[in-house]
């Protein structure tokens, strides 16, 4: 039996503050996401959605509890090992796309492969761009793209190395409804095609409804939506 894509067991995240009570961003969160599923997490700003994603990505470490990604206990890994897991198994998508303006569209997509030291990635980059309808713009600067196009490039970047887990933080939060809908559909489609697990955070109930599972987070406490 394959391990769950994401497993949180009694996870809390506390941020100490110099002149105030510590901030409890997550409180005793337990979560099990089987591989190949899509999960939407909704919640208000500051409820702990992004913290949850950061912990799942191994960007941050829990103050209490255990986080397991694809069978690996992140707490037992050092920073370098967590980084390699993230590089090889996780794809990240951000609300503000985080594309690098000094790189072309193609180079932005290729960035994870460059970081991984791959040499032969040109074909895959074009293939993905073709899949999202941007193959003819591979050499263009990213600042000439629309918001929706930028997010499509960011999705390509996240998918390039074939990650088993996709984590998306408000992927449609910076897009209008029509573009948001399209991007979300594309993201779900591409995740499903590769049997990937997708966890995304959103404000939108409409987008959340497109996922297999919906969860809500309130003041750091995770509960079924």
């Amino acid at each position: 039996m394959s391990p769950p894509a994401v497993l949180f067991e009694g996870v809390s995240k506390i941020y100490p503050r110099p002149d105030a009570e510590p901030l409890r961003a997550l409180r005793d969160v337990s979560l099990r996401v089987p591989q190949g599923r899509s999960v939407a997490i909704t919640g208000r700003s500051g409820s702990g959605k992004s913290t949850l994603l950061h912990l799942a990505a191994g960007i941050d470490e829990p103050s209490e509890g255990r986080v397991e990604i694809l069978g690996a206990d992140l707490g037992r890994l050092n920073d370098a090992e967590r980084t390699l897991r993230r590089r090889d198994q996780i794809g990240l998508i951000f609300q503000f796309f985080h594309l690098l303006p000094h790189l072309s569209v193609g180079d932005n997509v290729a960035l994870p492969a460059m970081i991984a030291g791959e040499r032969d990635y040109g074909g895959r980059v074009l293939e993905l761009l073709e899949r999202v309808g941007l193959a003819d713009r591979a050499r263009e600067r990213v600042d000439r793209l629309s918001g929706g196009e930028m997010q499509r490039v960011a999705i390509c970047r996240a998918l390039l190395r074939g990650p088993e887990l996709l984590l998306a933080d408000e992927p449609t939060g910076n897009l209008d409804d029509r573009n948001g809908q399209r991007v979300m559909e594309l993201l779900l489609e591409l995740a499903a095609e590769g049997q990937r697990t997708l966890i995304f955070v959103t404000h939108s109930e409409e987008m959340a409804a497109m996922a297999d599972t919906r969860l809500a987070i309130h003041s750091g406490v995770l509960e079924p939506s």
């Binding site: 920073d79 370098a80 980084t83 390699l84 590089r87 090889d88 960035l111 970081i115 970047r157």
Partner: peptide, 16 residues
């Protein structure tokens, strides 16, 4: 800082 953090998020190691 954000750009560097992005690289780290995408899996870039410190030596890189």
């Amino acid at each position: 800082v954000s750009e560097l953090a992005l690289y780290r998020a995408l899996g870039a190691r410190r030596p890189q």
